[in-house]
Amino acid sequence: MSARTLISPGRYVQGRGAVHQLGEYLAQLGSTPLIVADDLVWGFLGHDVEDSLRKADLPVHRAGFGGVPSENEVDRLAGVIREHGADVVLAVGGGSTIDAVKAAGFLAGTRWATFPTMASTDAPCSALSVIYTEDGGFSEYRFFPRNPDLVLVDSQVVANAPAQFLVAGVGDALATWLEARATAQSGARTMAGGLPTLTGTALAKLSWEVLWDNAIEAVDAVREHQVTPAVERVIEANTLLSGLGFESGGLAAAHAIHNGLTAVGATHGLTHGQKVNLGSLTQLVLEGAPSAEIREFVEFTTRLGLPTTLTEAGLRTDDPDTLRIVADAATAPAETIHSMPFEVRGEDVLAALVSVERLARRIRADAKLPEPVPHRAH
């Protein structure tokens, strides 16, 4: 029998202006930090990060990020960490930067911390990294013996980012409860390495509830770069609640279908959360969820601007060969789709994907929501 397990970051800090406390918290972890951030992020945040570290009597050294958390990029960063002699490495940026830094920090044998500049994924809190191929396809999950020592989120920095990133984070986080409840039913092991705890499952459900109550209002506020109570709640749901919930509550079909979608070039250019949202809807179809639940999910996520059709992912129902690639990748032996409380085969995923197109279009038409806009890969 497997034990029940809950894992979490050492400290979570969130609030407007939190960047000014970064040095204070980082100094508790080490005296020779290395910051990893791409040039774009450093251009608008570097001054505040430098100022905070210097006030804490910490040196400022930065390494760039290559853009994709691939095996080669992780190995390169691990070499930079060793060469610098860093005792803590800080990721400043989005989920790709964070995943690369966690993996590199583990290889280099140092502590790691995260400063997400957007609330677009639940990567900042977790003890795993998603590794991709150089062209953006899913390669593997890498698991680590601990979570980040520090996760610090400046709510104003998140609100200053394009609203599409917050929307993507909602798409990622909404899957947390759908997958956790499936894992709880099946009794499968979670990404934390044990059975789900009541706490992990409850946090996943709380993430769902917070998003349904606050997401639309929060996205409207972020379009004006404002931080409101709704924005703070959604940042926490996307980052902390979803991070704890997916890792200690369990992943199932939605993220496996996301991974399948990355296997075809047509979906490249979509965010992680956009692909996950299509995976969530497909999971609901696979489950035979009540029509009312599916309708509410399609209407809610469409209003947020998330894709609910194959068309919006650059796919077509009359291209079964491409959809078969997605379905086969989603049902690979090691995939989390096998945490569903019933057997799922490639044919089942293929049928669900095809049915989603007409189903979502009908729901959207009935609700007088916009027609799907085809996605063009780039």
Rank of each mutant, 00 (worst) to 15 (best):
G171M: 03
G67H: 13
V222Q: 07
L270Q: 09
E347M: 02
P320S: 02
D99L: 04
G249I: 09
H20W: 12
S207Q: 13
T308G: 10
D328E: 15
Q164S: 14
L359F: 13
F297H: 15
P196K: 10
H47I: 04
G30L: 01
N277D: 09
D366V: 07
V157H: 08
T110M: 06
N238H: 02
T199K: 06
V210S: 03
D75C: 12
T239A: 05
I35L: 11
T301R: 15
T282Q: 01
T97P: 10
L77Y: 13
Q28P: 02
R16P: 13
Q283M: 10
Q156F: 06
T197C: 10
V276E: 06
R189K: 09
D135F: 03
T110I: 01
A329S: 07
H84Y: 13
R62N: 11
D172L: 08
A327M: 00
R146L: 01
V13C: 07
F144L: 05
K55L: 15
I35P: 02
T331Y: 00
T190R: 02
A289T: 10
T317W: 01
S52R: 12
L22T: 00
T302S: 15
P307S: 07
A103I: 02
P333A: 11
R316Y: 03
L195Q: 11
P124Q: 06
G260S: 00
A218M: 06
G169N: 00
G193L: 03
G200A: 04
L306W: 10
T262E: 03
N160K: 13
W177P: 01
T110S: 06
F143T: 02
E312H: 02
L359I: 08
V153L: 07
V344A: 01
E335G: 02
A256T: 01
G105Q: 14
L350S: 03
P290L: 08
